[in-house]
Write a protein that binds this DNA or RNA. Structure first.
Length: 115
DNA sequence: GCGTTGACGAGGA
DNA sequence: GTCCTCGCCAACG
């Protein structure tokens, strides 16, 4: 059913899911990977975000953090404070690069979306 | 074509 | 609870 192009689908899906993250919500790389059916390929999700810089699509990567709620990828933004600033703008409290009440802002595509 | 790296996660000790 | 190891997929040298 699916050809080798399936691999590329993974990338496109990542951007799609990230773009679907509601305002003021965050999710984890693993959650996205799991939603795509890869589960353990969380690293590839991060890699996709890296490629997102090359794309002109507005990918709210600042809403994607690791499972610890740490802004691990903030350094990949224009400035390290961009990510924190954007999250703060959306009502997400970030202290020491860590999201406070992470679970409260956590948004799981598997629970909110339907495949 | 091979080896290493990378914005991660889960499991085992 | 922490620390270490493996897996996963794509890009880069």
């Amino acid at each position: 059913m699916k050809d080798k192009r399936d691999n590329r689908d993974f990338f496109e899906k990542v951007f799609a899911v990230v773009s679907l993250i509601p305002y003021g919500k965050v999710t984890s790389y693993g959650a996205i990977a799991r939603y795509l059916g890869s589960g353990s390929s969380a690293r590839t999700v991060g890699w996709a975000m890296n490629m997102a810089h090359s794309l002109e699509d507005a990918v709210p990567a600042h809403r994607v953090v690791n499972r610890n709620g740490l802004l691990t990828g903030k350094h990949h933004f224009e400035t390290p404070e961009t990510m924190e600033k954007l999250l703060a703008s959306e009502g997400v409290v970030v202290v020491n690069d860590a999201i406070q009440n992470f679970q409260q802002h956590y948004w799981d595509p598997n629970l909110s979306l339907v495949i």
